[in-house]
Design a protein around this nucleic acid. Sequence first.
DNA 1: AAATATTTTTAGATAACTCTAAAATATTTT
DNA 2: AAAATATTTTAGAGTTATCTAAAAATATTT
Lengths: 218, 218
Amino acid sequence: MLSFAEENYLKAIFHLSDSGATEVSTNAISDHMSTKPASVSDMIRKLDEKGMVTYKKYYGVNISKKGKMMALQVIRKHRLWEVFLVDKLKFNWDEVHEVAEQLEHIRSGLLIQRLDEFLDYPKVDPHGDPIPDENGDMAVAKKTPLDKVEVGVKGKIVAVNDEGSSFLQYLDKIGIYLGAKLEVTERVDFDGSMEILIDNKQKVFISREVSQNILITD
Amino acid sequence: MLSFAEENYLKAIFHLSDSGATEVSTNAISDHMSTKPASVSDMIRKLDEKGMVTYKKYYGVNISKKGKMMALQVIRKHRLWEVFLVDKLKFNWDEVHEVAEQLEHIRSGLLIQRLDEFLDYPKVDPHGDPIPDENGDMAVAKKTPLDKVEVGVKGKIVAVNDEGSSFLQYLDKIGIYLGAKLEVTERVDFDGSMEILIDNKQKVFISREVSQNILITD
DNA sequence: AAATATTTTTAGATAACTCTAAAATATTTT
DNA sequence: AAAATATTTTAGAGTTATCTAAAAATATTT
Ligand SMILES: [Mn+2]
Ligand SMILES: [Mn+2]
Ligand SMILES: [Mn+2]
Ligand SMILES: [Mn+2]
């Protein structure tokens, strides 16, 4: 059985490797987790011994089939809990991530199965991220980061890349929410900032930093 | 902030001390927690330094006001989660304790406040134990262990002393549940075993070990 | 291709929690 | 009140997860 720390490392490696597609460097993990590279080296050696990753010294790690499944189970729990907090306990979408970071480590097959049922088998979490099923499978919808689209493009906001409360509270403030209709009305090539029209009502001006973290479908 | 281990020790000390009334011995804690006395000595020294207990070497510990409040908060969370699991997720009463042992350590004031609201401010958990409020206050109903009552006494089952699944499953099997009406129809003085009539329907014969763990109101 | 810079690993420490074995203290029995 | 017994603490060690500082390997620049 994996410790909380091991689960967190595995989750980080999974995310940083683009769901397992590429290898991940020690420094990338260390940055993402706010630990020191030395600690990462130790941990990935241990995860390698447990068959969760394959590790070639000085060349980074690749997550294994087994490790991927473990990561997906934790992600499943994280996202289901986020849905619970928003749908049932009336949390705002900016209040759930921290708590879900704790709840994702609760060990009980029955609990997560019943929670899924109680929530009526949700497919996405409050940030638009897909929820893996018991087998780790999830619907992968095509999502485009807003900074990559041209002027005139219309779409619907379906997800965000940043779950931090300062970003989400800013979105609340400017009237951006999941499901909102959106049109890019202006684009400044120099810095990538843009003006967008939300629900055919308000126009707001956002920086590239913001648009990078907003995902739309066309 | 207290660690999981510290919270568990404090909870044990609180329970073993009759809600703080008496001092608790090292061995009693060690037995209750399935750790070694040496580990307990270490931990209570640490809890003393943190002002959670007062500890006199070789004479056991007394929980402090502060420690009692911490214990009650953990107990509050534990019992609220048990209610959630039974009422909302359709767990049986014998399936909740282990999971609640994990959930009780989740840190979020908002979560527990909202959970309480979501559950409609329950007063007791699935085993009949009272749920402390935010201030640690709880309704103390007068409950009598079944082994202490005479033949002919009638009452209602309001709580159990053992949350283990083998005990609770046995109660399920013989038709005992919280709220059931009960009458003591026979008593064997020799070994304390007794025959009881449940809901004026089935008669069952139970040992003293069982009757000690069933609490009634008259 | 050598020098320099960056990344990664190793060595050695620390903190929290646990253990066993031995020593110290308290309690009970004779 | 001395001896025997039981309880509790201390000493020393192991595990997990973290850190800093130094060494080793790789990557980049000249
Ligand atoms: Mn999250
Ligand atoms: Mn999310
Ligand atoms: Mn319980
Ligand atoms: Mn209970």
